[in-house]
Design a protein around this nucleic acid. Structure first.
Lengths: 413, 413
DNA sequence: AGGCTTTTTTTCGAGCCCCGAAAAAAGACT
DNA sequence: AGTCTTTTTTCGGGGCTCGAAAAAAAGCCT
């Protein structure tokens, strides 16, 4: 059962709340923080004095010099960029990308690299990941001690505790405990999470208006992935990252999926499936990699005239629609973000998708469901990883439960 | 964003935790409570003294007189039955049932009634519900003032806030705000929740060993319903009670479902669907009501010899299996409880069900998924309603946030 | 320019709450 | 009857938040 609240937890939680309020609002004054948290001015004053003294926050007068109001001007509080740093690692099909991000969320260094994930042996894949991280950490401009967290976003299934990649479409390898490997190698706490979940996290930060409590991020790429936020929190499975939307069964015994099973949504809506269908290949044909450029050309052809290309997108829409409908039967409808190269072809997908949804339990709301598209998934994934890592630092390092803060926040008087 | 923790919340939460510990453990000593909550002995002592003085808890020495240990004997703490009472209302197909339950969870009065829900006009249906509740409340043995909550469990979709029935298979009527109606009528806070969700709540209390953090309760009856507990909490949709497992699409464009759509899981696995299939009727045939006795006879026939009856159960198993597989793709596998009259025929359903799951994303775990059966849903639903109402009293009335407790817990010195 | 008004921020004392240590209580054991 | 063991209560100390009041830092107005 849930444990009691000790008296000292109180300050810890309220500290975390103040930090979180600053991260969310940008440069709020103490008064604003008091308003959003519901705590009294005196409490906010005390906590923020602590945080400034510990080098976690700074005062920044430049809060809207335009607002010429009477009264004592507000002093904006901001996250101190030097308070800490985090490192993000994004591993996707044939592509590895690393970035170093300061405590305020600004990218301060990055590096990208192509690699043949599909054929690399285990040691090599791990080795490349470790090597690129090491290169970034050895950057003389970077204070290695300030790097408080490594967050990895990876295409594939991860475990609930964000320790390992369990299975991935980008490599035949399974069960790689990336988080443990990185921690052992660099002595920095690390996590490994599903890329689509990170996309969802990023959307929540980018547009909290639209993506607040309940929404769905769907990656339309080689495969189909999903990140789900319910009641404000990232939804994961009981054991794994969960949300394997792409592998819900659309047609029992149907088209061959990359995962080896038949009839999955992905076997109709993944890039390879659209391609296979447009080329009039058999539904049993082995999935092939299709480049983004080829997919864009395919979409152009489908737009130009009716034919097998257009039909392929129509079938993709149908599969996505029934899948979404089934999802809506469980969780009710919510705003959807379509991300990835095929999101740019959403105009070809949408009609059949809506028609399919209308035939499902979510159908009553079919018209009111709103879709948004974002063709570029990589920046989203990185952003999500960064925010995940930064909020961890906020909560666990700068508002710790019991044990002292490590070497960070060192600008203490 | 989540609101700050005020200083007074602390005591409130810890009070709630003590009450909850007592409800869970039965007759724990103060020391045991200190252990499970993680709070200090002195705090538990202070809080329980308050609660006893307010007439919410009582000391009950009779805690295992067998344990002859050295040292001061423990004093068991128990919920004081007279501290409050709750009333449960269970409305299902052609059946209405009400019970009054004391604060310790014992049924102290009950009443049941048949009624033709399918054909009753709106006023009459509401009227009967109000009337049966009024009769119970007018019982001279009952102190009406102690009734702190009414919890209604209803077959059908309810809204997230547990205010209204939105849609139900037991009546053509829609959008009946039962909670508001009961509150207005009796001036007692009320809720209206989905029956399968209440089943899940009850299972969690009955067997917390097996049904703790993640599990699924599926009602196999005229229709197919589901209650889902994830990460220890009841899972509901964003707008409605959600979990419309029975109306996930199993075969696009397939058999006619009671809901008017085609290919739903229920259209293969609901009692009417099994019946329709066993009688070799068309998949487009209008759903008919089948009595429990007829279903039991059907199952017996299916067990006796191979034929259309056995095939009907096989197809039901297949539909349930693909449905569960799709669910498992999203949330990972979890223990399942099959409840309702067709749960007694689970032996006929299981083989095809497991085979179907094996073809889905959850398939890897197919063997390890464990099923349990419980043919009688009514007691479960009532128990769930009772626990829901009682924990509400625990949390919101006896550990209130700010405003004083109403007239309850009146045995104050 | 100097005093007044307004708004933000800090200071201060009061009131709670939790905790640890010590004391008290209540039997069992010898 | 005295000692031991375990549970429960009591008591003092340290923290935390809060409200009120004071201080600070402007703009406004005569």
């Amino acid at each position: 059962m849930s444990v009691g609240i000790r008296h000292d937890d109180l300050r810890r939680r309220n500290r975390a709340m103040v930090i979180s309020a600053v991260r969310r609002a940008g440069q709020p004054s103490r008064t604003e923080i008091a308003a959003t948290t519901g705590l009294s001015h005196s409490t906010i004053s005390a906590i923020s004095a602590d945080l400034i003294q510990e080098g976690i926050l700074t005062e920044s007068k430049a809060s809207e010099p335009t607002t010429l109001k009477r009264g004592r001007p507000q002093i904006g509080l901001a996250l101190k960029p030097e308070a800490a740093a985090v490192l993000t690692v994004v591993l996707s099909l044939n592509f590895l990308s690393v970035a170093v991000i300061d405590y305020a969320g600004q990218v301060i260094a990055e590096e990208q690299q192509r690699l043949d994930t599909l054929v690399m042996p285990r040691d090599e894949l791990i080795g490349e990941c470790v090597a690129i991280v090491r290169r970034r950490l050895q950057d003389p401009d970077l204070d290695v001690g300030s790097v408080a967290r490594i967050a990895m976003g990876i295409q594939g299934i991860t475990d609930t505790h964000a320790r390992a990649m369990l299975w991935s479409p980008i490599t035949p390898l399974t069960d790689i405990p990336f988080a443990d490997i990185l921690e052992r190698e660099f002595g920095i706490p690390a996590t490994t999470e599903n890329d689509c979940n990170m996309m969802a996290v990023a959307l929540q930060w980018r547009d909290p208006e639209r993506y607040r409590d309940d929404f769905i991020a769907i990656l339309l790429s080689h495969g189909i992935g999903m990140g789900l936020v319910l009641k404000g929190a990232l939804f994961t499975g009981t054991h794994s990252s969960g949300g394997e939307f792409g592998h819900m069964i659309h047609r029992p015994g149907g088209a061959l999926c990359r995962c080896g099973r038949r009839g999955c949504v992905e076997a109709y809506a993944g890039n390879y499936a659209i391609w296979r269908s447009a080329m009039k290949m058999s539904e049993d044909a082995e999935p092939v990699d299709v480049g983004d450029a080829d997919m864009r050309a395919l979409a152009a052809k489908a737009r130009a005239k009716d034919g097998p290309e257009r039909e392929a997108y129509r079938r993709a829409g149908e599969a996505l629609g029934f899948g979404l409908g089934n999802l809506f039967a469980l969780i009710d409808p919510a705003p959807v973000a379509m991300v990835g190269v095929s999101a740019a072809a959403f105009d070809l997908i949408e009609p059949a998708l809506r028609e399919a949804i209308a035939q499902t339990a979510g159908g009553q709301y079919s018209k009111s469901i709103s879709f948004d598209t974002e063709p570029n998934e990589l920046p989203l994934i990185r952003e999500g990883c960064a925010m995940r890592a930064l909020t961890f630092v906020d909560q666990e390092i700068f508002a710790p439960g019991g044990q002292a803060r490590a070497g960070l926040g060192k600008n203490v008087a």
